[in-house]
Design a protein around this nucleic acid. Structure first.
Lengths: 207, 207
DNA sequence: TGCCATATTGTCCTTCAGGACAATATTCAT
DNA sequence: ATGAATATTGTCCTGAAGGACAATATGGCA
């Protein structure tokens, strides 16, 4: 699977050359020779201003050769932007100045059918996807079962919207104890904070 | 970076051996020799019933050696389970019967700091992060109708669990503006804070 | 008897949420 | 042209949330 770069300035950066020695560079999609439906890894360089152009280029490449893999190289990585390009068909999104070794890794992943995204982006996706988890086969009861008795009691009060002080008063323990149980519950259930806890425990069960 | 497998049955499957020829297998965390703070790729095999054990094993491993990479191998891949293990620190989640070539690829990705998840899971994550409105009942739509366009946009992001900073980034406005819209929304809808807003906009039960 | 899990609590710290008061710019209806 | 609503942003402030590190006590089990 060969590589090609699309860069408005029509210049290969050193790290790109080192990562993909045999790659060719073009200024735009039109400049690419028509080579039939061969698979390629297409690296499109852009910045926030030229993102729409990059997205349009990707669309056209994927229209012509759906089996191509498109990786977006940006000067200013941004999560929302990453989500946008990935949702529109890119299989990778990384910094244009990344080390050659890193780019080789990205190349390896996508050439085998993988998708590349950073840990921070994955974290955001997981946060945003909590409703999905709520609708999973793992019921609320199952999740509560992962907690100890006291953790459960505290979690339920927190899910109602009570503050730590209010929960402490209701259960006749200190605020510090409330925090300890909540932190343990967050970790056990894979939740970020009490808001996610509240959403999780208030999910409708499926009967 | 060497590999080790944790499998209750203390047996290496053929595909594991082929993917990681020099790896060692242990029945549990206790059986692992204390080798100091060396990085390792730890593959933990489990099924739905032993997931809690696997998660606990991972926690202990990461407590002892935070630089270790943990990959969960399951007999029954499940999206919610994948999200749970990834949110608790795993960097990979895949099928225990995966081809050696595939496991090698996973190994390569995580050893270079990447996180492995399948294209299907990523797709689900991105779908799940779409706006909440559309699946809501009329009452929620009615409440949203009380807000201005911008207030609505901010409220929806907040209801997903995003912080003010994250919302500011997504909508390309300042954190101060986010706060202003949220405060206005709380007052307009008669809500105390973002937790109540989240429960209201995600509401499925009527108590 | 010893170990582990659980429950409880303390101090300290950073970050975040949200309110108060204030201001400018834009859009739209009158 | 004017006024109101909306959008945006600033500074400043307090209180809450949550994490880190630490400690003691209790109950159950091998």
């Amino acid at each position: 699977m060969h590589d090609l770069f699309i860069c408005p300035r029509n210049v290969m950066r050193d790290n790109w050359v080192e990562a993909c020695p045999k790659a060719k560079v073009y200024a735009d999609v039109e400049s690419i020779p028509k080579t039939g439906k061969r698979e390629a890894i297409v690296w499109i360089h852009c910045d926030p201003q030229t993102l729409p152009w990059a997205l349009e280029s990707m669309r056209r490449i994927l229209d012509l050769s759906p089996q191509c893999k498109v990786i977006i190289l940006t000067n200013v990585p941004d999560q929302a932007e990453a989500l946008l390009v990935l949702s529109q068909g890119a299989v990778g999104y990384c910094h244009a100045y990344s080390a050659p070794r890193f780019l080789k890794e990205v190349r390896s992943v996508v050439s085998h059918g993988g998708i590349w995204l950073g840990a921070e982006l994955l974290k955001s996706l997981m946060l945003a996807s909590k409703p999905l988890v709520g609708n999973s086969s793992k019921s609320i009861a199952d999740q509560l079962a992962l907690l100890t008795k006291r953790e459960r009691e505290v979690a339920i009060e927190a899910a109602k919207g009570l503050s730590n002080k209010e929960i402490a008063r209701v259960l006749n323990i200190t605020e510090r104890t409330v925090k300890a149980h909540l932190s343990a519950s967050f970790e056990r259930l894979g939740l970020k904070d009490r808001l996610q806890l509240a959403l999780t425990l208030n999910e409708k069960t499926h009967d």
